[in-house]
Every structure is written in structure tokens, then in C-alpha cells.
Design a protein around this nucleic acid. Structure first.
Length: 582
DNA sequence: GCCGTTTTCGGCCCGACTGTTTTCAGTCG
């Protein structure tokens, strides 16, 4: 029997957390926080922790003897005995009750103890009969509020996290609407969106304004607001499009750095920073880093000031996961994150030569030049992609257009590439002689997503070794929230890619962000492996997606030295040439 | 439950909001 995936281990630990919250009667007991920390630790690992022996599990920061044994128990028996015991004590439906906003473990336990209510149906009944207000600490107002919260249950369920592509679109729409008002001095998003998590629970917006009440008014009245959860003089929460909660806070410009740091999180990263502050006799909250005794502010204006005061370099938001980044930063082991200004070329760009391309070659090249690119690989689809790919004749016609474009664009080096299709056995389009006439090749999986792992690995290994292939495009083929990626032996593919001089793409599209960040970190451990941060743009407007790919690379702790398209033109051409000469 | 330039025992992040409990408990982020 194969061992459970990290996702399965995390799901089991989440159950452990939920039941332990009930058992302990508090959501933040030291025990549940310890389990939660273990979840955080597992979630940033790409190797299956269920295969590790006790000694190696305990060596992971945040996992101690007790949790390690529970993971092993889960790997061996498929369940955790503590969870089984608690399941017998508390019906699973009580966990549903805890998801209702406003209902925590204390209240859910009181429902069971005093009213015998253990599920949502029973709770509705108790509200109808006005029994909730008889519980200690609850009154008529709480009863009404809980009744309203039940209707929001869908929005707060675990399954309701929104893919980042959709959430980012909503956030930018709201930001544009608020900026149009002239009330807003500055507006930024924070939270998991800023950390570039793949799915978003709610959107956090931070505003600097002299007129907070007017900003809140405008916010709660924006188009798309389907429900106002609460609103005061400095903060408000709404639901947008019946889909996602958005929290907005108005803060002082003097405290903006502290607020942005605080609301960006992650929770565990913040806790590490606060512990660090305490060690220096200071305290850190959303207003400032300040001296506990004198109340004097040490830093608050910018995140950089606060990190510096804590003896740390600015830690880029994408890595603030509480996954060892604070320690690494202190030890100088956190690589200088790749910056959008480091990118010199785009190595995966489509034009209208592709059936699904929407901008002409001329427009694409104009836009690339305007954005300061020094080189580009035009990679229209190849013939095996029947609907959108180019026949050999079309390839030659496109090449003629490229030759013309080169003559009028000395500032931009244009490579004629192709996005090849990796077949089920690892073969690609055209034939070796014709392939050799291209300057560059990206090879991607566009079909056969459901082959078993060994065959996926084999087809990727074949593509990696192909001399016409310089980059493996969107390696897993996933679409976040829509389609899982193919499963392959990542170590084998990364090792082979490093040996063959084949780069691994970090696809910039927010629906892809492929490789996933944990796999990027794993690939960073393979010496000599290079990444390509590429937009895969099908329209000039998508060239701006570059920032998301850079952000994703940062999340994987990538520095510019490891990025093929951060190399100077001469270095880049040397790497590409070496591969194609094989 | 985890962890150690405070500690193998005794600590463990911080504040706002809400409702109801006249001084605080529960929930949330």
C-alpha cells in the first residue's frame, strides 16, 4: 500500500485540530496551536512526510514526538486513534456548527450540554423556539446574529476558498472603484492574496485616507456588494458577488507599515516576529513596533523599518509562511528574491499565428520592447495541437515574418521558438531535422492528464532529454481550482533537467502558477537547475502577468542567478546553444 | 503539544469587536 499524500496527512491533522478545539473548549489552546503548526510545517514540504521515520519527523521544526507518532499512526492505519475517540464523543455535525461565524467551541459545547443540539437542523429549531437565549452568556441579540450567520455558512465552508485568479480580479476591481473616489490616499491588498496563496479565503484591503467614514460608506455601497457583514468607523466587511468576503480597514499613514505587515500575515509568521520583539523588550502589533516599558515607537511607517529594527532584512510577502523563513533570513540563508527588474526576456509568448493567439506579432513585439525586454522567444503552438498549432508551411511563413521584424528591431533579439506538445510516450511534434531549424523550444503537456505517475514521469524525462526542448512549459498542467496537475516523480525530472540543461518553467498565469511553490523549493535544491519565468501570453495585456510569475518564484525562494531569462543575452544564448547542439 | 542564549519545566502573540457578565468571555483575524 502506498503511503498517504501530504494533502491526506494535512486533512487528517485538520480533523485533529477541529476535534481538539471542541475537546479543549477553545480554538487557540496550546495543543491545537501545536497541531496547527505541524500542519503549516507539512504544507510547505514537497516530499511525502508519511514515509519518514520517527526521527526525521521529529527533526522537522514544529513537529514533536506526539504529533509525529500520530502521523505515523495515520500512515500505518489510515486513522488517528485520538480522532476516533473524539468522533465517538462529538458527532461530526458539531464541526459544521463551529464553521458558523460567531459560533466557537465554547458555544457549540454549550449547545450540546444544555440543549442537546449537535447539528445545524437542531440549531435552527432551537432558534425558532427562542431557546438559544437561555444559554449562559447568550441573549436575544446573539440568537438573531447566529440565525443570520447560518445563511452565510456556504461562504465560510472549507470548500469555498476562491482560486487566486478570481480573487485577484475582484480585488483589483474594488481597488479601482475605490481609487476613483479621490478619498483614497493609498490602497493595498494584504492577506493571502499578497502572499500569493493558490486559493483565497477572504480579501483584505488596507486604505490610507483622511476621510475614513466616507471610504467605508463608499466601500459598503460598491457594485457587487451582496451583503454587509459589519461596518464601523475604521473597518467594514462585505460579501462580494455572493462569493467572497472582503475586509477593508482604514489606517494612519504613520502606521501603514505595521498594519500592512500585520494584515499580510501569515499568522505564524507574525507570531515569530512578535516573539522576536518580546526578546528585545518590545511589542509588535498592527500599529507599531514599540518599547514595552516606555511605550516609545521604534518603527511603524514601513515594513522594511520594522524588519530592520528586528535585525532582519525585508522578508518578501510570498515567503511569510512561518516555514523557517525568519531563521533563514537571520542567518543570511534567505536568497535575495528575484525581482521583476531582473527579467531580461520572455520565453513563452504566442501571437495570432497560434489559433488561440489574440495579438499580432507586431503588437506583441512592440509591447515587449516597451516593457524593456532584451530578448523574446516567440513560441506559437505546434502541429500536434490540432485546433491551434502551426503546420510546417505556417512555421516557415512565420519565420519569414520574424526575419523581417528582426531587421527593424535591432534592440530586441527575437528567437523563433515553438510550444511543442509532449505526447503520451514523450515524443514531440515535427521531426528532429525540422525541429533543429528552430532557435528555441518549450515543451508542454496538453493532453493525457490521467496517465499513471510512472508514465507521466517517463514522458517528461523524454522531453527533458530532447535537444530541441529548452524549457518544460507549465510542467504539471494544472489549472488552480479546476484541474489537478499530472503527478510525476519530481526529483527524477528535476535531476534530469539539471543534467540536460533544460529549464523548468514557472508559468505566470494566475490560473496556472505552475510549478507549484513547494515543488519550486524542492527544485532549488537541485544544483544547476534553471527556471524560466514565462508569461505564456496570448495577448499583449497578458505580458503584465510577469509579476505573478516573479512572485511565484519568490514564493519558491528563487534568486535571479537560477533564472534562465535573468541571464544576459550572451549567457542566455550560450545556455540555449549548448542544449540544442547535443 | 512544543521547545530551550530565560527554561527538560514553564512558558507560549496581540488587539478589536460584540454582547451582555457592571468587569469579562467568546470569537475573530
Amino acid at each position: 500500500m502506498s503511503s498517504p499524500s501530504n494533502a491526506a496527512v494535512i486533512a487528517a491533522l485538520r480533523q485533529l485540530v477541529a476535534y481538539t478545539q471542541l475537546e479543549d473548549g477553545q480554538s487557540q489552546s496550546f495543543r491545537t496551536r501545536a497541531y496547527q503548526k505541524a500542519i503549516d510545517a507539512v504544507s510547505v514540504r514537497s516530499d511525502p512526510v508519511a514515509e519518514l521515520p520517527l526521527g526525521e519527523l521529529v527533526a522537522i521544526e514544529g513537529i514533536g514526538d506526539s504529533t509525529a507518532r500520530k502521523i505515523i499512526e495515520f500512515a500505518e492505519r489510515g486513522s488517528i486513534s485520538k480522532v476516533e475517540r473524539l468522533k465517538a464523543k462529538y458527532p461530526a455535525s458539531m464541526l459544521d456548527l463551529m464553521r458558523i461565524p460567531g459560533l466557537g467551541p465554547k458555544t457549540v459545547l454549550a449547545l450540546q450540554d444544555h440543549l442537546g443540539v449537535t447539528d445545524v437542523a437542531g440549531l435552527r429549531e432551537a432558534i425558532e423556539e427562542e431557546k438559544l437565549r437561555t444559554l449562559p452568556g447568550l441573549g436575544a441579540k446573539s440568537e438573531k446574529k447566529i440565525a443570520e450567520s447560518i445563511e452565510l455558512l456556504g461562504i465560510h465552508s472549507d470548500e469555498s476558498r476562491t482560486p487566486i485568479f478570481d480573487a485577484m480580479g475582484i480585488a483589483h476591481r474594488l481597488i479601482a472603484d475605490l481609487e476613483a473616489s479621490d478619498l483614497v490616499e493609498r490602497i493595498e491588498y494584504a492577506g493571502s492574496l499578497r502572499r500569493l496563496e493558490e486559493t483565497i479565503g477572504d480579501i483584505d484591503l488596507l486604505v490610507v485616507s483622511d476621510a475614513p467614514v466616507e471610504v467605508i460608506d463608499r466601500f459598503t455601497g460598491l457594485p457587487g456588494v451582496t451583503s454587509v457583514l459589519g461596518s464601523g468607523t475604521t473597518k467594514a466587511s462585505v460579501v462580494i458577488d455572493d462569493q467572497i468576503q472582503v475586509d477593508l480597514r482604514v489606517v494612519d499613514s504613520d502606521a501603514f507599515g505595521a498594519a500592512w505587515l500585520y494584515f499580510t500575515g501569515s499568522r505564524s509568521h507574525n507570531i515569530e516576529l512578535r516573539q522576536r520583539a518580546i526578546g528585545r523588550g518590545w511589542t509588535l502589533n498592527e500599529y507599531a513596533l514599540s518599547n514595552v516599558d516606555t511605550d516609545e515607537t521604534i518603527a511603524s511607517r514601513s515594513e522594511e523599518d520594522i524588519y530592520r529594527s528586528l535585525g532582519l532584512p525585508l522578508i518578501t510577502p510570498e515567503v511569510r509562511e512561518g516555514a523557517g523563513e525568519v531563521g533563514a533570513a537571520e542567518a543570511g540563508r534567505l536568497p535575495r528574491p528575484v525581482d521583476i527588474g531582473d527579467i531580461r526576456g520572455d520565453l513563452h509568448v504566442h501571437t495570432t499565428w497560434s489559433g488561440d493567439g489574440r495579438s499580432s506579432m507586431d503588437d506583441m513585439l512592440d509591447a515587449l520592447t516597451a516593457s524593456g525586454m532584451e530578448y523574446v522567444a516567440l513560441t506559437d503552438h505546434a502541429e500536434d495541437l490540432v485546433m491551434n498549432g502551426l503546420s510546417r508551411d505556417q512555421v516557415l511563413e512565420e519565420r519569414a515574418e520574424i526575419v523581417e521584424q528582426r531587421a527593424s528591431r535591432p534592440e530586441l533579439t527575437i528567437l523563433h521558438g515553438a510550444e511543442l506538445n509532449i505526447g503520451p510516450e514523450g515524443g514531440v511534434d515535427y521531426d528532429p531535422e525540422f525541429l533543429a531549424t528552430f532557435d528555441f523550444g518549450v515543451a508542454s503537456i496538453h493532453s493525457h492528464f490521467d496517465l499513471p505517475q510512472a508514465r507521466q514521469t517517463d514522458r517528461l524525462l523524454a522531453a527533458v532529454a530532447n535537444p530541441a526542448v529548452n524549457v518544460i512549459g507549465h510542467p504539471s498542467g494544472r489549472k488552480i481550482g479546476r484541474r489537478p496537475g499530472v503527478v510525476f516523480d519530481a526529483d527524477a525530472v528535476f535531476e534530469a533537467a539539471a543534467e540536460n540543461g533544460t529549464a523548468i518553467e514557472i508559468n505566470c498565469h494566475l490560473q496556472r502558477l505552475d510549478l507549484a511553490a513547494p515543488l519550486i523549493r524542492r527544485a532549488m535544491d537541485v544544483d544547476g537547475l534553471l527556471f524560466a519565468i514565462s508569461t505564456d501570453a496570448h495577448h499583449t495585456s497578458e505580458l503584465a502577468n510577469l509579476r505573478w510569475g516573479v512572485s511565484q518564484a519568490r514564493k519558491g525562494w528563487v534568486s535571479a542567478e537560477r533564472v534562465l531569462n535573468c541571464l544576459t543575452l550572451a549567457e542566455f544564448q550560450a545556455v540555449v546553444g549548448r542544449k540544442r547542439a547535443v
